[in-house]
Design a protein around this nucleic acid. Structure first.
Length: 490
RNA sequence: GGCCCUAUCGUCUAGGGGCCAAGGACAUCGCCCUCUCACGGCGAAAACCCGGGUUCGAAUCCCGGUAGGGUCACCA
């Protein structure tokens, strides 16, 4: 890959499944990288030893792959800035912290957790915003601080935030954002466990991995000035920033499991195709022209412009996702759908694995017929059920509705007989036969079509009747119709 | 509460001073096609948060209010 200096990253912490908000952020990074021939880095932020798990890391990676978000550098693919897991980069953070203490940009703080809580509560009681500025430690003699550290006294490393001035940065989708330094406390860089805090690790990694554009969720806006302060103190050039808005549920609250599906895995389970989720998420707030909506990842990348991303939070609309999913279902080839369907049909007991394997061409034709009517992959077993098995269950009430009419009672048995004697069984011959009889009796064909559908499929809705009959086959169709004739007599 | 972000149809959005009596998509409601469903076609209803400015002219620029969201940890 040619190096043009454009490098972005998605840096999740492996503390759960990949959330839609997260995928969308990853997606924007990916689109930006692809659009600009840049490098997309995946970095695992597992400094929270309590909550990070190996299992989550694996899940994260498989979810990313499922939705076609391939990373150029990161776990497994590796790259020039390995390792890509923060727990394996500890020496780097310690070294950076050391540097900052030596240069005076940071200092050792010996305040205990209890003291800090106390300070915060006092401030709150007095109506002040709790901003910790180091107390006695900020200006403690450096040699003495070092001595106390060497005796093993518990301490953190804090950033010596300037008390005046402001920290400003240009956000690619929001313009300039500025924070008064007096509102930023002396935040912790290294915890007493000698491990870095998020802000410190992220800034150090972004700088060292030469990330040129930091594209992330807007819940990180308030972290940005701190990271900028760290960048500057360490002597690095600043990256560009873009903060993308959150994804909200229908109630305008941050999307979560409460809203049903929230993780990539949930959507996969609910029959959403990865291409559809990808497409929908990319459209959500990305500011693409509104006249078209179905794009491949490549097309999406081609048209992606980070400045066009909307700054306001987007409500996740499951209905629209479904409609896009239905569009993608129709775009799948019957062969692809058949491959997808076979295991589902076997698992749901609609057909035996044996039978399916023996007759994939038939399954393919079935899928071609059903394709337009499917919204999710999970609709397949239910939709295809009547193409398999021999006898059907008929809803008594509906049965009465279909076969209770005199015309049907009088003519249906004859129709079955004629169908049975057809020299050839296909879409055309069955149609001619059924319409022919209706015409003879001077009745609309629908008076026969509906009962036949009900008899052959057990339902009142199906794909076109004649193509359905052809695919059902003569034997299965006739035997089901004869069943109903028998039931009519009873 | 402090700080920060955001504000066009129900939802996602187009719009970046006159081309907007605001366009598209999904959803909704009609009609057409038709063997049912789906697809498709046609049509309807539906929005610039409020108040001040700036300007000959504002959905578009500025300010204030309001509302929603984010964030205030030795979590990320």
């Amino acid at each position: 890959m040619e190096d043009n200096g454009i490098r972005v990253r998605y840096a999740p912490s492996p503390t759960g499944t990949l959330h839609v908000g997260g995928v969308r952020t990853a997606l924007f990074n990916w689109l930006f990288a692809r659009k600009n021939d840049g490098v997309f880095v995946l970095r695992i932020e597992d400094t929270d030893l309590e909550r990070s798990t190996e299992e989550s890391t694996e899940q994260l990676k498989s979810s990313m792959r499922w939705i076609h978000l391939d990373w150029d550098e990161g776990p497994e693919t590796n790259g020039p800035h390995e390792p890509y897991k923060q727990t394996e980069r500890m020496p780097l953070y310690r070294e950076a912290a050391q540097k900052l203490v030596e240069s005076g940009a940071a200092y050792y703080d010996f305040a205990t957790a209890e003291e800090l809580t106390e300070l915060r509560e006092t401030a709150r009681r007095e109506g002040r915003t709790p901003i910790y500025t180091g107390g006695e430690y900020r200006d403690m003699d450096a040699d003495e601080a070092l001595r106390r550290v060497q005796t093993g006294e518990s301490h953190t490393v804090r950033f010596r935030t300037p008390r005046e001035g402001s920290t400003v940065f240009g956000d690619m989708i929001r313009g300039d954002i500025s924070f008064e330094n007096e509102n930023i406390e002396d935040f912790v860089l290294m915890k007493s466990t000698n491990t870095p805090t998020y802000n410190f690790a992220a800034a150090v990694d972004d700088a060292q991995m030469k990330i040129s554009h930091v594209i992330r969720g807007d819940d990180h806006i308030s972290n940005t000035p701190r990271q900028i302060l760290i960048y500057k103190a360490l002597g690095y050039d600043l990256p560009a920033f873009a903060h993308v808005p959150q994804v909200l549920g229908p109630d305008k609250k941050k999307l979560s499991k409460r809203h049903g599906a929230a993780s990539v895995e949930d959507f996969a389970e609910q029959g959403i195709l990865p291409e559809a989720l990808f497409n929908y998420l990319a459209l959500l707030g990305a500011g693409y022209a509104a006249d078209e909506e179905i794009f491949s990842p490549g097309e999406l990348a081609e048209r992606f412009r980070i400045e066009k991303v909307s700054g306001n939070p987007a409500v996740f609309d499951e209905t629209k996702l479904l409609s896009i999913n239905a569009l993608y279902m129709r775009k799948q080839s019957p062969e692809e759908l058949a491959m997808l369907a076979a295991p589902m049909l076997a698992e749901s007991g609609v057909a035996s694995a044996d039978e399916l394997e023996r007759d994939m061409p038939r399954l393919t034709k079935i899928m071609a017929l059903l394709r337009e009517r499917l919204q999710r992959t999970t609709d397949i077993p239910e939709a295809a059920a009547y193409f398999y098995g021999d006898t059907l269950e008929y809803d008594p009430e509906e049965f009465e509705k279909q076969f209770g009419k005199d015309f049907v009672k009088e003519n249906f048995p004859e129709l079955v007989e004629r169908l049975e004697n057809l020299s050839e069984w296909n879409e055309t011959t069955t149609e001619e036969c059924i319409r022919g009889l209706a015409a003879e009796k001077e009745k609309g064909a629908r008076h026969l079509i509906h009962p036949v559908r009900f008899a052959a499929t057990g339902r009142t809705v199906s794909a076109g009747l004649f193509e359905t009959l052809e695919l059902l086959g003569r034997e299965r169709s006739i035997s089901r119709m004869e069943d109903t004739v028998g039931k009519m007599g009873a």
